[in-house]
Amino acid sequence: MKTISLIVPVYNEEATIEVFLNETFVFYNNSINKSKYLLEIVFINDGSKDSTLSLLIENFSKYNNIHIVDFSRNFGKENALFAGLSYAKGDIVIPIDVDLQDPLIVISEMLTKYEEGFDVVLAKRIDRNSDSFLKRISANLFYDLYNSLVDVKLESNVGDFRLMDKQVVEEILKLKENQLFMKGLFNWVGFKTTIVEYTREERIAGSTKFNFLKLFKLALDGITSFSNFPLKLFLYFGLIIAVFSIVFGLKIIIEKIFFGISEHGYASLITAITFIGSIQLIGIGILGEYIGRIFLEVKQRPKFIVKKYYTK
């Protein structure tokens, strides 16, 4: 028999815990071959401030296959996912959100592909109508931009919800970086991969903990974690501006020698100065992002701190 580990990061999810567990056990009892697969659920309490932890502990006392990793504070979903991989004991690992926007029935399709010999099964959303218009547009822009800059591409509309063989998880856990972009790490290790498609549902309860700024930061982390092209981009900008400057300088010399130079207004000069100045500031900002990542990495702080681990 093999064990399936569901990795479930939670942050202030008191409204969803009971529903998630009820739906999960109904699904396991009705849709999974229990002679082939056992189930464990690893919750990572990412510093919740509501009654999430007490509800988890209450259910921990009722079920033998629930484990709880309780963080000392909020470390963020990426770190919580990594912690879940670290504590999972299963032969098959599946990260899933507690809001059940990713339907449990998709796991059956994933297991079918796994039994066909695939190490990784990605769950691809074919319908994101449950997301806001802005979120759909920004997600598409992110995937297009990311894949244009990074060598190891991300499959569009694939989140953290996926099936991974234990060997895949072990390879991910060998990666030492502290600033995590888990979608990129999942993809970077490779292995034999396939896709199942599904329609994303509405949240069962509660509200999302991600706002536009958090998603923007995650996107920025993803790009700077796996590509140095933004740094190279400003070398290209500099070369282009240098060529234009040489051409413009030659034009002024020719006008001066052969035609006499006419008096020009200062508007074009100010425009050129502000344009080049803005490019320089953007370049310094991008350079600062990379230096900031180096600064955080060299300190080698732990990715998370576990206050208590509940297991049986």
Rank of each mutant, 00 (worst) to 15 (best):
V196Y: 13
Y28N: 02
Y310T: 10
S138Q: 05
F27A: 10
K307N: 15
Y28R: 05
K166N: 10
I137S: 10
A219N: 12
K299Q: 14
V10M: 07
G249S: 06
F133W: 01
K62A: 13
K2H: 07
F216K: 11
T193F: 04
I17K: 00
I107M: 12
K209P: 14
L141V: 03
T52M: 02
S86K: 08
F118V: 00
K308E: 13
Y309V: 02
Y143A: 07
V19A: 08
E58Y: 04
L6V: 11
R203L: 12
N228H: 12
M164V: 01
L149W: 10
N187D: 08
E170V: 02
F142Q: 02
Q179E: 14
F295N: 03
L235P: 00
F43N: 04
F212K: 13
F259W: 04
I137C: 05
F60P: 01
K89S: 10
F226M: 08
L100P: 09
N33M: 10
F118I: 01
D127N: 15
I241W: 01
G260R: 01
R200A: 08
S5P: 00
T52D: 08
L180V: 12
K36N: 14
V196R: 11
G159R: 00
E58F: 02
E197W: 04
N129Q: 10
T224Y: 14
S31A: 12
K135P: 00
K2L: 09
S262H: 07
I137N: 07
D144Q: 05
Y198P: 06
S72M: 05
Y146G: 07
I7P: 08
F304C: 04
I284K: 15
V247E: 11
L173K: 11
E170W: 02
E263G: 09
V106A: 08
A80R: 09
Q280A: 15
I96M: 14
K217D: 15
V8W: 14
R136V: 03
Y290A: 00
K217W: 15
N12Y: 09
L235C: 09
L149V: 00
K49Y: 05
I241E: 13
F237P: 13
N30A: 15
V42Q: 11
F210T: 03
P230T: 12
V8Y: 09
I4T: 11
E177G: 01
V98G: 10
K124M: 02
F248A: 08
Q167H: 03
T16L: 00
T193Y: 02
V243E: 06
V42H: 13
I4F: 15
L85R: 12
F275N: 06
R162T: 06
K183A: 02
V152Y: 08
E115T: 02
F27H: 07
E177W: 01
I276V: 13
Q179D: 14
G260D: 07
E170I: 07
V306D: 11
E289P: 03
S35W: 10
G288V: 06
Y87M: 09
R301P: 02
E201F: 11
L233Q: 13
F75V: 08
D165R: 07
N65S: 13
T24V: 04
W188N: 14
P230E: 10
L53F: 09
D221Y: 07
V150N: 08
I279P: 01
L39H: 14
G90I: 04
E116C: 06
N59C: 01
A83V: 06
N187T: 15
S31L: 03
G90W: 11
F191G: 03
D221F: 12
K217P: 04
S35P: 13
K308H: 14
I294G: 10
V120G: 12
T24I: 09
Q167M: 03
S130R: 02
